[in-house]
Simulated scan of single mutants.
Amino acid sequence: MKKIIKRKRVSLLLVGLFLIAILQIVSHFTPLNDFVKGSFMGVGFGLLVTSLIVGKFHKSVL
């Protein structure tokens, strides 16, 4: 059970970081409007925070 939670936490963290990195690369080469930038940054940070919360919640419960 702990292995599945850890894998899920790491995958959320990596997807969030990857999304933010891709956004930075794409916005460097092509002009994006603020709504698109904000949406992708918000989803990326949301995934990062979710991965931290999932890890802390399951550590305190188990």
Rank of each mutant, 00 (worst) to 15 (best):
M1K: 12
M1G: 15
K2E: 15
K2F: 13
K3N: 14
K3I: 14
K3T: 14
I4G: 03
I4E: 15
I4S: 11
I5F: 14
I5N: 10
I5Y: 12
R7W: 12
R7Q: 08
K8Q: 07
K8S: 09
K8D: 07
K8T: 12
K8C: 09
R9T: 13
V10I: 14
V10Q: 07
V10D: 12
S11R: 06
S11K: 04
S11Q: 08
L12H: 05
L13V: 02
L13Q: 10
L14T: 06
L14D: 01
L14F: 11
L14V: 12
L14C: 08
G16I: 08
L17E: 04
L17N: 04
L17V: 13
F18E: 07
F18C: 11
F18D: 05
L19E: 08
L19A: 12
L19H: 02
I20G: 06
A21L: 15
A21I: 15
I22V: 15
L23N: 15
Q24Y: 14
I25C: 05
I25Q: 06
I25R: 08
V26D: 10
S27K: 12
S27I: 03
S27R: 12
S27W: 07
H28I: 07
F29W: 09
F29H: 09
T30V: 12
T30W: 10
T30C: 04
P31W: 11
P31N: 11
P31Q: 13
P31D: 10
P31Y: 13
L32S: 04
L32P: 01
L32F: 03
N33A: 02
D34N: 05
D34Y: 01
F35G: 03
F35M: 06
F35Q: 06
F35S: 08
F35T: 10
V36I: 08
V36H: 07
K37I: 06
K37F: 02
K37Q: 06
G38P: 01
G38E: 03
G38D: 09
S39R: 07
S39N: 08
S39W: 05
F40W: 11
F40M: 13
G42P: 04
G42L: 01
G42T: 02
G42D: 03
V43C: 10
V43L: 15
V43I: 15
V43P: 04
G44A: 10
G44K: 04
G44L: 07
F45T: 02
F45V: 02
G46R: 06
G46N: 02
L47H: 02
L47Q: 03
L47W: 05
L47F: 05
L48C: 00
L48F: 08
L48D: 01
V49M: 05
V49H: 01
T50S: 10
T50P: 00
S51D: 03
S51C: 05
S51I: 01
S51H: 08
L52D: 00
L52I: 01
L52Q: 04
L52R: 03
L52W: 02
I53E: 00
I53A: 00
I53G: 00
V54Y: 07
V54P: 01
V54G: 03
V54I: 05
G55W: 10
G55A: 08
K56M: 02
K56Y: 05
F57E: 11
H58R: 07
H58C: 00
H58S: 04
K59A: 14
V61F: 15
L62V: 09
L62E: 15
L62R: 14
L62S: 15
